[in-house]
Amino acid sequence: MSLSALLNEYGGMYLRALLNTWRLTAICFTGAFIIGVLVTVLRVCPVKPLRAFGVFYVQVFRNIPGAAMLIILVYALPRLRILLSFEMCVIVASVLIPSAFCSEHLMSGMNTINPGQIEAARALGLTFTQMITRIVIPQALRSTVLPMTSLCVSTMLTTALGSQVSLRPHQLELTGVVNYINSRAVGGIMAFAISAALYVMTALLIGWVGARIDRKVRILR
């Protein structure tokens, strides 16, 4: 199929798929970030069992393959009487896995802080909470912009899991739409190329925004 024929017939679908990929990426990255922060809090808190739980969480979701995660959510959970919609399964998988990596990035971001600054904060009379909110978190966040940018891209790539469950046509994301078109018509290389181009464009856009933010907030040392 030629490019124009494809776009004529499926252009609207591609557009919706692109928006779905963006929507899923935004939702999942936000979710992953929030959970990643919470897990990091557990990993640095002084209560040993919570630390252990945080480490366990990260190791599980950092190391589980996306397909295995999705299959468990889609097939195993219903047998345990937990029913999620297909789309929700994709979202949960694309939140949990990146959240573990988010926590890893935050941990290494914290390690870039010079411990002397923590002593200085103490010596000035800042309380523990003030030290965390004014010194540790701002520095950790500002030094993890680039890793978080790659995390956002890899979250987008993870949402391609959406092609592995039967979503309704209006829910299809960029990988699922290629599958859909190929099962109906001979989409050929073009059907694939359009999605690939939209993915790469999005990744470059995320990278560009990330680099700009990084330039603005990067901490000179």
């Binding site: 092609s163 990988t175 290629v178 190929n182 001979v186 989409g187 990744a203």
Partner: peptide
């Protein structure tokens, strides 16, 4: 490099699975 980093593995798998045989 930008292409391989920006495209999900699944899409590449579909390419090898669906598109290549037709070619």
């Amino acid at each position: 490099i930008e292409f391989t980093r920006g495209v999900p593995t699944l899409l590449l798998i579909y390419f090898f699975f669906l598109v290549l045989p037709r070619m």
